[in-house]
């Protein structure tokens, strides 16, 4: 065997191992969600089995259906996304394009808020929400989700606003358009793509959040990441159903992740590149 061929085989082997390692737990959950409990618990684990949608039927339409929880997750994620975007788009535009005193400080403040450990935010927040009766409400959860979604969205949007040429705005001003009109008619359409990417990431982060949700949820508002625990208890684990719920919880984010594939590195590293460089 030549050294070259050996190299290629080794490369192929290592690649396969890593690809399998990353994909397997997800694929395995999907397979388990299509099994009966007996098949899930089989030893050795079964790769070949007769698939059934029973687990999905049970978790969606059976008693203790998770449909309300999926709805909770959707309301929280959509609500967070809308409120975040309404605030972040204007703020990001101002930070990227306008001149005012204290601009750098404002940008730094947005970044610094991300240093706060979430547990340090939720303790005082829990006390406040308890006093005003906002535990187990959508407004309570969505408000606190702004603590992580806003800084993220602002910085991601700033990077897109900075890419638009100044000439566009200047031409609009010379034509006598007001600032607001220019922002709405000329600038926003230019960053449509960036706004779409930001929406995807804000939704994704809100959907995946767990710590705030576990503290603030109750019988009315209980997203699927928290409701998952109904299927594992000390007495028994409902294996196939748990797998089905996991798959349902993964589905939206996996779809969004694959759709936004090209932008994922930018979305994951936002703030670090820019803000970090400035500090």
């Amino acid at each position: 065997m030549t050294a070259r061929r050996f190299r290629i085989i080794a490369l192929l082997g290592i690649s396969t191992v890593f690809l399998l390692a990353w994909a397997f737990p997800i694929v395995w959950s999907v397979l388990n969600s299509l099994k009966t409990d007996t098949d899930v618990l089989a030893y050795p684990p079964k790769l070949v089995f007769s698939p059934t949608l029973e687990a999905y039927r049970d978790v969606l339409f059976g008693s203790g259906s998770i449909l309300p929880n999926l709805l909770s997750s959707i309301i929280i994620s959509v609500g967070t996304t809308i409120v975040t975007m309404l605030m972040a788009v204007p703020a990001a535009y101002a930070l990227a394009r306008l001149r005012f005193r204290g601009k750098k400080l404002a940008g730094f403040y947005v970044l610094a808020t991300q240093m706060l450990p979430p547990v340090g935010i939720i303790i005082p927040y829990f006390l406040v929400l308890r006093n005003i009766g906002w535990i187990d409400t959508y407004q309570g959860i969505i408000l606190i989700y702004l603590s992580f979604s806003l800084p993220f969205a602002i910085w991601l949007l700033v990077s897109y606003f900075e890419d638009i040429p100044f000439e566009m705005e200047e031409a609009a001003y010379l034509d006598g358009a007001s600032r607001l009109k220019t922002l709405w008619r000329i600038i926003i359409p230019q960053v449509r793509g960036g706004i779409a990417v930001t929406v995807v990431f804000v939704f994704l982060n809100a959907w995946n959040e767990f710590l705030f949700a576990v503290v603030l949820s109750g019988n009315t508002v209980r997203p699927v990441t928290v409701a998952m625990f109904n299927f594992v208890s000390v007495e028994q684990t409902l294996w196939a159903k748990l797998a089905a719920v996991s798959v349902l919880a993964m589905l939206p984010v996996v779809v969004l992740g694959v759709v936004a594939q090209k932008h994922i590195v930018k979305g994951l590293t936002v703030g670090a590149v820019k803000g970090g460089g400035r500090r």
């Binding site: 997800i26 395995w28 959907w207 995946n208 990441t225 684990t237 748990l242 996991s246 992740g257």
Partner: peptide, 18 residues
């Protein structure tokens, strides 16, 4: 992309069980 877009709560649950 798959692992990084998942909720750590779901990831934890999958590992703990399956």
């Amino acid at each position: 992309i798959l692992p990084v877009v998942l909720s750590p709560a779901v990831v934890g649950m999958i590992w703990r069980t399956f």
